[in-house]
Design a protein around this nucleic acid. Structure first.
Lengths: 338, 338
DNA sequence: TTGTAAGCGTTATCAT
DNA sequence: ATGATAACGCTTACAA
């Protein structure tokens, strides 16, 4: 930067003023500076900037499983919003550490990250997320912590779950089972609640519906399907409500190996509507969540928070509740023998 | 840090020595320092460190399409290796900018990134990658630039392609067509070469095999399948060799809508063996690339380069050529009417 | 073994 | 409108 100043025959402060237009500069000198920048191929040292500004223009993205297209899409949305602001997105996998959150908290405290977007699909305890939130701004996606209003971007899981369950039941199923998400997750809870509402509305007893708790990963869908379908054909469930597509896919994988035909022998539904949902066999009936948009919105929310940090607390915009809409496809049919 | 020093009754340099053990410190004082750190909950300011050390402990990961599980797995591998070193991984989507590489080059020059791992699936021109490489260390994954030995992690695409094509032909197909990757990519070229070798070995003329050039995205698989299958049933291809799974999936999507049965009417194969490949309908015959391992190896290569930057140039380890192994599944059958 | 002090490349406050 | 200059928080000669 000193070089640029010398080359342009001005002082470093003038250069700084030009680069950030943070001060009045005569247009002739401004031109000279810009020129020098080009000639010398000067690039500002961001580390120095960060130090001085006490901010890093980068945010963390905690994502449990990139292989899950739902998360991948959210990540794309976040990245897009960040890129528009020249902000870097740091990928944070919640490792197999004991207390992964403390790692991320350190990143916030150590000024490596200005804020964090948290996809809590793996089912982190609320307490650890709150711990993280104490270290800096955090926005939740597809999750919410009751009682603490952390900013969060969610879709109407409960309604989506209710509708898809209602649809399954309307096809005539009486013996359904649920593969739920991690029980510590609010969203998982909401979906469960939605399922139960529909079940009750169909004059069945929700408490008699078997519920297996998974972790949103494909493998657990496989395992829990195996478990739930262990009984004899005339008493086991004829429909499986899975709290996300990834587990539904796992369940389908199991059925394939177990020679259970879908939907003739068993109906299966998911949640999320990931891109491949309609391409697996058979096409998965599910509930669409607008993942990319949600990621984009989450980043927007976080930036709003970061901007507001300096100024007096302006109006905090309420994030929209995204719609979760039913996608009826081929993986559901009336129960066998009906 | 000054606070810590004061609290421990030592000088700041002593604190620094302790924190990086970069100097001899009496164990009694070391303990006092560590203690003060804990009491004051001191976290070093990484921006300041970065400035001083002229390095950022973060690397860029350029990934064209997170929705493609192959890339997602590589990303996971990279992230894992990076986490082991306390290095941050910055997600870089090659935006719809004119010259995206210049953005990333800036990140390197501006000291926001120590190096870059480049997944060139989108088909960036070699020239722009080389431009990037001038700005800092770059490691390629699933790609290579002939004539310039940038460090690269690749699998044996050519052999994999040859084997899968040979398998398809051994089922009796005589009219095959190819959906290739971006023609600027070396890997795409290798696969094409592998296909052609097998075709020639089957006493067919490789030059008569239709080749459509895609961009490795699902959508282009869809579109090109439509194109290649336009002719009358008795003259159109009976098998489609797709240069990656994502495009194969797109092709399958098209066939589904066009009511073409796979594999009865048409055989399709892919490349990569992404996790869902065996779950789509029908299970996709493909060539496995060990994506996660490749990502991990790429990060290792990059770190090796970064470490070597300081010292005299030690032996540069040659990265292994990963195996690409055939996965035979249900999407291939003998041609119709045989 | 420990402390002092000089930067690292910016930004921002102050005089001018 | 412009230019010195003092931070920002850390590392690392060099001195003690």
């Amino acid at each position: 930067m000193k070089d640029v100043a010398r080359h342009a025959g001005v002082s470093v402060s003038t250069v700084s003023y030009v680069l950030n237009d943070s001060g009045p500069v005569a247009s002739s000198r401004r031109a000279r500076v810009l020129d020098a920048v080009r000639v010398l191929e000067y690039t500002p040292n961001e580390s120095a900037r960060n130090l001085k500004r006490r901010t890093t223009s980068s945010i963390g993205l905690v994502v449990p499983d990139l292989t899950n297209q739902f998360f991948a899409l959210i990540a794309e949305g976040v990245e897009r919003a960040a890129a528009e602001r020249g902000v870097l997105v740091v990928l944070c996998a919640p490792e197999a550490t004991d207390r992964p959150e403390s790692i991320h908290a350190r990143l916030l405290q150590g000024q490596r990250l200005d804020g964090v977007i948290y996809l809590s699909g793996a089912g982190a305890a609320a307490s650890s997320i709150l711990e993280l939130a104490k270290a800096g701004p955090v926005v939740l996606v597809d999750e919410r912590i009751p009682g603490f209003d952390l900013p969060a971007v969610v879709a109407d899981s409960r309604r989506g779950a209710r509708e898809i369950a209602a649809y399954v039941l309307s096809e005539g199923h009486r013996r359904v089972a649920i593969i739920g998400g991690p029980s510590v997750l609010w969203t998982a809870d909401q979906r469960l609640a939605g399922y139960r509402e529909a079940i009750a509305a169909a004059s069945l007893d929700p408490d008699e519906v078997p519920v297996a708790v998974g972790d949103y990963r494909q493998e657990s869908g496989y395992r829990l399907a195996e478990e739930l379908l262990a009984g004899p054909a005339d008493s086991r469930p004829t429909a499986l409500l899975c709290a996300n597509d990834q587990m539904a896919i796992g369940a389908i994988e199991y059925c394939r190996e177990a020679k259970l035909r879908i939907p003739q022998d068993l109906s299966i539904v998911g949640f999320d509507d990931v891109p491949i949902a309609r391409l697996i066999a058979p096409a998965l009936t599910t509930v669409r969540q607008p993942a990319r948009e949600m990621g984009y919105a989450a980043a927007g929310l976080l930036f709003g928070q970061l901007d507001r940090a300096g100024e007096g607390d302006a109006a905090k915009p309420e994030p929209p509740l995204f719609a979760a809409s039913l996608r009826i496809r081929e993986s559901v049919a009336p129960p066998p023998g009906s």
